[in-house]
Simulated assay, not measured.
Amino acid sequence: MKVSTRIFVSPLRLLSGVLLACGLVLTVACENGAAGAADGRLKIVTTTTMITDLVKNIGGDSVSVQGLMGSGVDPHLYKASEGDVTKLTSADVVFYSGLHLEGKLVDVFEKMGRTTNTIALAEALNKDGLIGSEYFASNYDPHIWFNIEYWKQLTAYLTEQLSELDPQHADFFRANEVAYLRKLDALETDVRATITTLPAEKRVLVTAHDAFNYFGQEYGFEVVGLQGLSTATEAGVQDVQKLARLIIDKQVKAIFVETSVPRRTIEALQQAVKADGFDVAIGGTLYSDALGSAGTDEGTYLGMFTHNVNTIVNALK
């Protein structure tokens, strides 16, 4: 019998080798001057679709932006591929959300810290105003983009960071900041006007996981997620039964699926409610941990927020 002499290299060892090699390449590049894109623009890598959209709004054509996560991708469970590691280590700067949202990328960021500038935009926020959470290493709910005021603060912080990294375009970044903040002000006005049409007693928001607590806090909704704050935790039978009873007791008209969470979790809840003699509709799909497809309204922060509010209000009326 012929014995194979092929040597097996574990994926972990291979990833470590890639990290080391990329780190050495980047170190050499830094010694010879800033890496930058081929055309001289600041080379930026982002994590979530929300952060990618924000950086594009402020950086515009003066920066080169690569986003790791696409539409419908769950940042709680996202793991970096070898290609991602190469992108991350060759960037001038990496912008990410923070508060342990991108939990499985934290180790990669820590290893990169010596060679690549990594910036968590959530660091702009005063922790005293954040919602506490025992499910994240940060001890805070990381779904901060559902508070528009917080998003404005991240916008200002990003502008400041970009201006320091690329002073030649600082005026351009600040002009974009002013324009984008005006859009966020208009969004806030429209959102409040729409939500006002929904009676307070009907503001019960049931979704696949607890991504909307900042939204609920700001606009007076009771928010209940089947899977809790992190999609890494599975909902059990008791969780489903408990939430089904709440829906019946409060006569909730509709519950919602999320683009980044399997639909079956909410469908199971719907069936549990029906088994107890009450009909609850699936009111539509919400964008929670990721924006919609690129090139659509929902593929932007402004469009995503507008879609979510209209969907919630129309279904619960």
Rank of each mutant, 00 (worst) to 15 (best):
H143W: 08
G103L: 06
R114H: 11
G103C: 05
N126D: 15
G98V: 03
E102R: 04
Y140P: 10
V108T: 10
K127A: 14
L121Y: 04
W145G: 02
N139I: 06
K104D: 11
K127H: 10
L125V: 11
E110F: 14
D141K: 02
Y140H: 13
T118P: 14
W145I: 01
E110C: 04
F95W: 09
L121P: 02
N147V: 02
F146A: 00
I131S: 14
A124W: 09
A137R: 15
A124K: 12
L130M: 07
D141T: 07
N147S: 02
S97T: 05
I144R: 13
A124Q: 10
N126Y: 04
R114Q: 06
Y135V: 15
F136N: 12
S138E: 09
D107P: 01
E134H: 13
F146G: 00
G98R: 01
H143M: 07
P142T: 03
E134G: 12
T115Y: 05
D107G: 01
V94W: 09
D128G: 09
P142Y: 03
V108L: 06
G113E: 07
V108D: 04
K111Y: 12
R114M: 04
A137S: 15
K104M: 07
D128V: 04
L121D: 03
D141G: 06
T116N: 02
E110L: 12
M112F: 10
E123V: 12
T116Y: 07
R114C: 05
L105N: 05
Y96M: 01
V94T: 02
G132N: 11
L125R: 14
L130S: 12
A122C: 12
I144K: 13
K104E: 11
W145S: 02
I144F: 13
L125D: 13
D107F: 07
P142G: 06
P142R: 02
N117V: 15
G132V: 09
I144Y: 13
Y96S: 00
R114N: 07
E102H: 05
